Simulated assay, not measured.
Amino acid sequence: MSPIAMRPVGMVRSTRAAPTDDGWDAETARIELDSARFGPEALVGLDAFSHVEVVFVFDRVDEARVCTGARHPRDDASLPRLGIFAQRGKDRPNRIGLTVCRVLRIEGTVVHVAGLDAIDGTPVLDLKPWMAVFAPRGPVEEPNWSIERMRGYW
């Protein structure tokens, strides 16, 4: 397959500089759009949504650490060994992150959010309003280990 080139639409500004795994819901952050490409009109109407999906790049993950097979989530041997596509780790093949965040406010070309699990300086690839119509239809299932292990994440 051919590579795909992407250009960030903006950058995360946050007080969190290290990619620690828990307590993200207490974090507030700003997503600053690239003002050379986007003006305030790019965000018109986003403030009518309570949540936004933020697509970003785990740009500080060393490519040598990228997993293309199976591993223990969070490198915790007490958790089952799972394929990289059965977990949400940062050392994934294209190092892409996706988080649904609360929209706090919008000021010009800056979106203030809560609950974004990306560190300061992280490149943002896209923003999409979260709409209930795109939420899963029908029952949602997940293994007990993920519920237990992620209890403190947010």
Rank of each mutant, 00 (worst) to 15 (best):
G115F: 05
L43D: 01
T20M: 08
A36W: 03
L82F: 04
F134P: 00
D62M: 10
I147S: 01
E41R: 00
L46V: 10
N94C: 13
P19I: 07
D22W: 03
F85Y: 10
M1L: 13
T122C: 13
R60G: 10
E27L: 09
A132Y: 01
V133E: 08
W145P: 03
V111Q: 07
D76V: 08
G97L: 07
F49N: 04
R92S: 15
T20H: 12
G89F: 03
L104P: 10
M6E: 15
G108V: 08
A42E: 02
A114N: 07
L116E: 04
D117P: 11
V12M: 13
D47K: 09
D75E: 12
W130P: 01
R7G: 03
E142T: 14
K90M: 11
A114W: 02
F58P: 04
A132K: 06
E27V: 13
E41C: 00
F134W: 09
A26N: 07
A114K: 10
T28S: 13
D91Y: 02
E148L: 06
V140H: 04
S14N: 05
S146T: 05
G121T: 08
H72P: 00
A114I: 02
T28Y: 07
A132H: 00
L82I: 06
P123C: 09
C67R: 14
T109W: 03
L79R: 03
P8D: 11
L127Q: 07
V12E: 09
H51Y: 10
T68R: 14
G10A: 09
H112T: 15
L46Y: 15
I31G: 15
S50F: 05
T20L: 12
P136N: 08
A135M: 10
F49E: 02
S14Q: 12
T122H: 12
I84P: 03
R71N: 01
V12F: 06
A70C: 04
D76R: 14
C67H: 07
E41S: 01
G108K: 12
